[in-house]
Design a protein around this nucleic acid. Structure first.
Lengths: 190, 190
DNA sequence: ACCTGAACACCGTTCAAGT
DNA sequence: ACCTGAACACCGTTCAAGT
């Protein structure tokens, strides 16, 4: 019986940071952050856990940094903004960004940790740029960018936790609530 | 030589949930969330780690839930609000709440996790009540309560990460930025 | 009732070794 | 260059035992 090349290590798709990060995100989304271990990640990639360290020398820290970058680094479309439309651009960006955060709720605690401080920079910068192109002055734009991003992240955190109302336990319409609060923030901006 | 009662287990202050939670918070604030282990917590309390389980049957989960409750359950003063002052009450609450979150930045990731969904309920309720007493109608008050809490938590998260500006690396005046953004949110509310 | 000690299954990571 | 296997120090938690 000849060697079976299909089960030979040489024939597998080689490991890469992209494949590792994707597999990790799938574990986090499907089973929760607490179940993301190097050994389980290795299993998912059909590789010994220790092989991962060859691609991520800083180990699990680097892996988690990558997850934060993958989820939280999503800039707004700075090309489409002018004086008439910049609020609309930010509104649609905010909707998309909220969607990302909710789709990967397991990484939200990581976004809030000190790790990977560079990950949000591109996002904040793009928000300021959209406003600048809309004619908003530098300083108000910088404030509003942080206010907006802070609101979106904070609101997503509340949604994930599903903060109950007190009185009745009627369900909260999070979509509507997010939109109204967003308008409230955008109205003040600029 | 007689027995030394001072090093006898009988003479130590007995363990309690309060003492355990305080010691845990001190470890998190001083060394970070990652270094909070049951064994280290036991050391800090001069007890074997396993003794903790007698007071917290649900183990570390329950311990972390307690930390979230201790930090994030801080309602606004509902007694002091009327039609003229409710914005001021919320403004000062927000400042205090931000202070709490920054003082215990290590627990912020826990606040954002699914754990302990009840912890923020009292806080949200108090915000709605302040507005209700200020004459704001039910539905706008509910929206504004979530917007405000979302903003404060989200902004604190950005501060802790220290999101850098792009252009220059001039330092951000976080105090001023928080206050201005807060006014922006409160202006829209009601 | 309250705490201890030993034990179990599982982590992240290092390092020498294989191909 | 890329991956493996064994090993180390450290987790959370259980359980029987002590007082």
């Amino acid at each position: 019986m000849v060697r079976q090349p299909s089960i030979n290590a040489q024939n597998r798709a080689p490991l890469s940071i992209e494949r590792i990060t994707e597999a990790a995100l799938q574990i986090v989304d499907g089973q929760g952050l607490g179940r993301l271990t190097m050994r389980r990640l290795g299993d998912a990639l059909e590789v010994e856990a220790m092989a991962i360290y060859h691609h991520l020398p800083r180990g699990k820290e680097q892996l988690l940094d990558g997850l934060v970058a993958h989820v939280a680094a999503a800039p707004a479309d700075t090309g489409a903004a002018d004086a008439a439309s910049w609020r609309g651009v930010l509104r649609s960006w905010a909707g998309d960004y909220r969607g990302r955060l909710l789709a990967h709720a397991g990484v939200l605690p990581l976004v809030v940790t000190r790790r990977n401080p560079a990950a949000l920079t591109a996002t904040v910068t793009s928000l300021r740029e959209v406003m600048r192109q809309g004619g908003v002055r530098e300083e108000p734009a910088a404030v509003a960018a942080h206010t907006l991003l802070g609101y979106v992240i904070g609101h997503a955190a509340l949604e994930v936790r599903g903060t109950a109302e007190d009185g009745a336990d009627r369900a909260v319409d999070w979509d509507a609530r997010f939109t109204v609060g967003l308008d409230l923030v955008l109205t003040g901006a600029g």
